[in-house]
Design a protein around this nucleic acid. Sequence first.
DNA 1: TCGCTGTTGTG
DNA 2: ACAACAGCG
Length: 477
Amino acid sequence: MKKIIVWLRRDLRLHDHPALWEASQQGIVIPVFIWSKEEETHLHSSPTSKWWLHHSLYALQKTLFTKGISLIIRSGNNSLHVLKTLVEETGADSLYFNERMEPDLYLRDQLILKELNLIGIKTRCYCTNQLVHPSQIVNKSGGPYKVFTPFYKRLLKEFIPRPFPIPSNLRGLNQKIDSLFIEQLDLLPIINWDQKLHRHWIPGEVWGITQWTSFLSKSISRYQQDRDYPYTEASSALSPYLASGDLSIRALWYAALRFKEQHDELEGQVDAFLRQLAWREFSYYQLWHHPSITEHPLRESFREFPWNSHIEQKMDSWKKGKTGYPLVDAGMRQLWETGTMHNRIRMVAASFLVKHLLINWTEGAKWFQHTLVDFDLANNAMGWQWIAGTGFDSAPYFRIFNPIKQSEQFDQDGEYIRRWVPELSKLSAPYIHRPWEAQAELLKAAGIVLGETYPNPIVDHQMARERALKAYSTIKG
DNA sequence: TCGCTGTTGTG
DNA sequence: ACAACAGCG
């Protein structure tokens, strides 16, 4: 009987796991997780992703245990080496895994496939992190799409492979193989700031599925109308499960389609959700075709952009949610507290950093990477380039989000601000959107001393807007 | 003033 | 866990 190592990565789940499914059909399954921090640098530098991974691993270990299978955990700085050792220890003859699409990891994996083939191991790897493999979609001239809408139209015509079922009977190895304890990977922070993440998130496949069903029953019926309003909490809250691979994109895609068939009246709502999944798809598509987008602007002309260079103080205010713009601050504090930020507020806060403060988007991307529980290399890079106007299908340079107007429009009564910026909670709308314009008596009654209990704006909106337009006009075209 | 020690704050 | 620091002999 075949002995197959199933190398688990950002796919700690049983549903839609082609490598695990195929292995379960063909022989003995040896599931292995390898923590290789030198290779997975973008994961390593993200304490929130590591926290998620820790708990995700626990969840999977438990699930596998109930099926009589033990998860082997190893660490090392060279996955190839670890895998070779495991082949020797287990006598495995095959290695199956699901592809990872991050450029550096993809190259590493190709090398691993080659090296293991050389020593007579049968290898298979499967595309599962994308709806459709990025190389499969090209425009009429044979190149990659640069604009989302045509890409999306094309994607809808593609055949998207159906998700794989959960393997029902897994055969494990009789022999006991050494494994580390999950704790030994040191994924959790030393000081227990992660306690607050526990209040908002439960990692793992099971809770991902729970979140999906609760989204279907509670919010999807008003998704299209409500998703832009941060206080309604109408978003799906599925992003960390997708980013970690606890949920499969294809499983979600097909589940959404099935739901749409059963609820004709919600077609528009479900389509709005599918479109969001397609944005994720588009970001991996772009990362595949332009691996440098995580570091460099996609548009060459931006290499010379006059970004601010003395940024420390402003960066610090932004990170801490002390810019003096309530909506921006509310978002930044939600991020710090919960590891997530409402999508619309991400756009406002990111735009503020890039356009009002003229700070290079890569600085913002680094902070999001550090703090986001749903950090995703491709999504993050694309999102920031979109906001900065440095990507292909980006916000035009002259679109500068007005943090006050956005606040008035999407948080009209200031409830979201009140929740995350408690020192403003006694100030009513409309002044909660722009406290610096409130009369002295109003501020006093609300217990606010600008510059003390809540900062004055660190930059003037009108001045910043003109400055940004001027800076952007230098590289236009 | 030095060095020890307990406290505080920290992603 | 660890560094920075205040308080103390």
